[in-house]
Each structure stands twice: as C-alpha cells, then as structure tokens.
Amino acid sequence: MGAELLRLTAAGRDFASGLFWSRQRTVALEALDLELRPRETVGLLGQSGSGKTTALRIAGFLLRPTRGEVSVGGRDPWRAGGRERRRLRRDVQYVFQDGSDAFDPRQAAAGIVEEPLRNFGVPATDRRERVAEGFAAVGLTADLRDRHPHQLSGGQRQRLGIARALVLEPGTLLLDEPVSALDVSLAAQVLNLLRDLQEQRGLGYLLVSHELPVVQHLADRVLVLYAGLVVEEGGAKILSAPAHPYTQALRAAALTVDPGAGLPPIAGVAPPAQRGCAFAPSCPAVHDRCREARPALARQPDGRRVRCFLFSDQIDNDADRLSEELP
C-alpha cells in the first residue's frame, strides 16, 4: 500500500432549500469516511438521492463539506492557500458521465485535452506532446484531433474525457458513472481501459455508480449509500452476498442475462423515512424498532460493516458518532 491519496473524515453536506423565511435544511450526505490509496478503487454504490454524487464532489473539492474534512495527500484543500490548492487540484481529476455535456461543443478534441495544460501553465512546446500522449494512452487515434465532440461516438467522447483527466498526471481519478451512458460493447472497452491505466500509472479511483455489476467489477472496496448514509461497507466481495436489505435489492435489480428468470420482486422505491431507519418504508424485513430508532454501522464477523438492526448484535467498537449525535 502506498501513501494515502485522498481521505474524507466524517464529511457531510447540507443544502438549503425554499425561500428565506421558510428555509429548510436538506441533508445530502450525513457523514462519510473513506480513504483511497494508489492502485485502489473505492466504489460508491447507490441510487439518485443517495448522496454518492455529493460525496464525489466533496472529494474533488468542488463542494465544501458542511462538516467533516477532506484531505488530498494529507493536505486540506479548503485550508490551503491559492497556490497550494491549485497544486492539489491537479492531483484529483474528474471523469464525467457523458463527455458531451462536459465539453465545450465549439472546441476540437485536441483543444479539450490541451485546456487543463494551458490552465496550469504548461509551456506550449510541451503541450503538443502531452496531448499526443494523452490521445495514445486512451486509444484515440491522432486523426480525431480536429473533431468536435458531436462528431465523436459515445465511446470516443468517454475516452476523450479520460484523456483530459489524465494529462495533468493526477494520482486520483473521480469516475462519475463512467460507463452508464455507453452501449455494452463500449462499456466493456472503457472498463478495460480504466483497469489498464490504473495498473500502468498506479492511479486511485473513486467510482460512483448505480449499477452493482460495474462497481463489483472495478472496485476493491465498496460503500453502499442510501439517503446520505453508508448502509453497508466492505471489500467488493460483499456485493456477492449482501447483508443490508437495500444492498440486496440493488443486487436483485441487476438484470443479468437470465432468460425465463423474469423480474425480481423489488422493494426499495418508496421515499426514504425522515425518522428511524431511512430504508424502513421500502424494507421487506422492517419491524417496529426500525421506525423508531436509527441503527448504527456495526462491524460483522467477516469485517464488513452494516447499518441494520438485523445485524446490530455485534456493536462496533468505534461506535457510530452519528447515531449518538443526531436525532
């Protein structure tokens, strides 16, 4: 294990909504702990509204956490001065879900990859070479240099997004649903590419996805998020035999090729509860206690941690700060 690339410590974020006199606080992410090391992939799995995108934006310090801390290579970007923050920014780069939304449509492919280099003051003489290297690293041919985003296929745009993220030679890539906009054959290629780049460059990946097989395929460690809280966490193998009813639902909802299997009965589409366990309204195993109190993340014999009363016999030693502090 190399040095730590990225760490979130009890990081959370609230958003205010409504008008001034009726302002409400919405908790997007309550508190998240994670750390990322070189050659490691941490997956954040959850639906929309789970807080996974908020977590990713905090990790990329695009969003300042309301509580807790973020650190990049041991430094807090929000306490760093301008120059140092720029240096840290270089080290953590984003790959967006669909390049077509993230790119300037008027810019050609080469310019899109060059832009971060220009922003960080890399001399023009070096830029050309770095752009060519970036294209080569992701398997884009040089004849695509002058194409505009809309002239590229979905797979090429996603490669372009990865090339742009890589030109500054960051230690960490933040992958926001990197293959969910792609067809199967292209998704397979991009997943293979990400795997190769990680091996060659020792990159750390923080991956966000709502597709369990994608997280299972890429990630070493997994945090399953529901309504702003981690409900289950552990090595990627926990997804083969999930403990939390929400993770179980996500696994059942992964529609693998299985003729005649039909559709799984799905719980998990009711809005989360404000009180007690957030998943209670959708949970097939719900009992009275779940509507009253919130379970803590409890460590299990196999090392995973689960936030569910069904698994709360083994109480975690580093007791969950949240369940004590919050109502």
């Binding site: 199967v184 054959s185 997943l191 994608v214 299972q216």
Partner: peptide, 11 residues
C-alpha cells in the same frame, strides 16, 4: 461484453 454479476473482475 455484458458486465457479469459475480465475475472475477478480469478483462
């Protein structure tokens, strides 16, 4: 090409 469930994570 379909990402399998419980695959071995290889290419």
């Amino acid at each position: 090409a379909t990402v399998p469930l419980d695959g071995d994570g290889t290419r």
